[in-house]
Design a binder for these strands. Sequence first.
DNA 1: GTCTATATTTCGATAGAC
DNA 2: GTCTATCGAAATATAGAC
Lengths: 221, 221
Amino acid sequence: MARRTQEQRKAETRARLIDAAAELFATKGFHAVSAEAVADAADRTTGALYSHFGGKEGLLLALLDVWKERTAAQLSDEVASAPDPGTHFAAMWGSITRPAADRGDSWLLLEVELWLHGARDAQVGSPLARRYAEVRQQLGEGLDQWAEVTGTRLPRTPYETGGLVLGVLLGCALQHRLDPGAVPEQLVVDGLSSLLGLRTPCDVHDPSAPVPPRPTKGKRS
Amino acid sequence: MARRTQEQRKAETRARLIDAAAELFATKGFHAVSAEAVADAADRTTGALYSHFGGKEGLLLALLDVWKERTAAQLSDEVASAPDPGTHFAAMWGSITRPAADRGDSWLLLEVELWLHGARDAQVGSPLARRYAEVRQQLGEGLDQWAEVTGTRLPRTPYETGGLVLGVLLGCALQHRLDPGAVPEQLVVDGLSSLLGLRTPCDVHDPSAPVPPRPTKGKRS
DNA sequence: GTCTATATTTCGATAGAC
DNA sequence: GTCTATCGAAATATAGAC
């Protein structure tokens, strides 16, 4: 009874191949990685890969499925455990930019790699678009519920809010990856707060204020 | 005197190869395109390609240079010719999402393709990071000057502002590409206005207002 | 179900003619 | 400076043993 069944062995091989593919596709790129390299990294052979997924393309699609579930679960956890949007934003930003234990620092790379394939191939793009829609929805609903609890009101629908928040996070993460100093966490959290109408109102653009002390910490004059 | 000099022919071949590379790298991806395919599309041969750029990698670096200049020039034009931030944002959003005559609809694809290579290879990443910094700077300065003229004041430094604006544009463009309906132009322009503190203040999150008519045009409940 | 070995194709890069 | 021809390397995918 200690011996693993075929089912278990099959599932493990699948998982090993998908994990290896996630790592390699992210760090090197789909077309730059051979099927054999993926199989080697998973301690299997190309034969097993073809048996399970029919080829590299099939492996990519399977990876997309797993990726969907993982990120959805992670998002739910984060939304549920945040006391307020500020820390929520900081947590999300951290999970995007900080390298995590289970997924190196390649999360963003794989995300962009998948996006590129989705933009070029509808077979990948269609499920990917659904996933983005779900993220917008979950993100927006979470923020909307928080707003309701605290008596504030979002200036946009939850879905629209989710789109803008996701946009800021993605766009800033892209810049952060190439130049971390250019996009500090505080700036992102601050920008997201502005977007949700949570900032100190009415005083930032009052023309009558004589000389509002101008922040000067940004790069370059 | 009507005959072209060697210099001109050389320059034309360079340009043809770079243009073909831009198109193919964007639509198929760098590793998915053979050097021969690029040469064929440019009506030249691999021999000419290797003579000019030393290989596919060299061609990518040369393309990055040209790309830098082109986008910088385009950005300057747009900033200079916009009467106010609203139309400025709309124009930029259009130039990102709408397919243009000279560059198909592959602008964003090539941008992301280059980003991926930059994130993986410092030789590409370094000049790319510089370009992003310049874009943030130019974008921020343009908006700051506009703010000064109209008597308003940006809530952040120009450079920070440029980073957030660029982030929103990029992040929303990524979503838009997979699902155009999910991120309409108005939402992006509206979000950018919020970010700059240009929106109707003080009324969007007033808890005393009885029932601020909730917009409902977003997808999904 | 997985592995070894291999067939077939395609790519990157070069050598030499023009 | 460009083209033709080609070499060696590497990739995908398969066939058959275990």
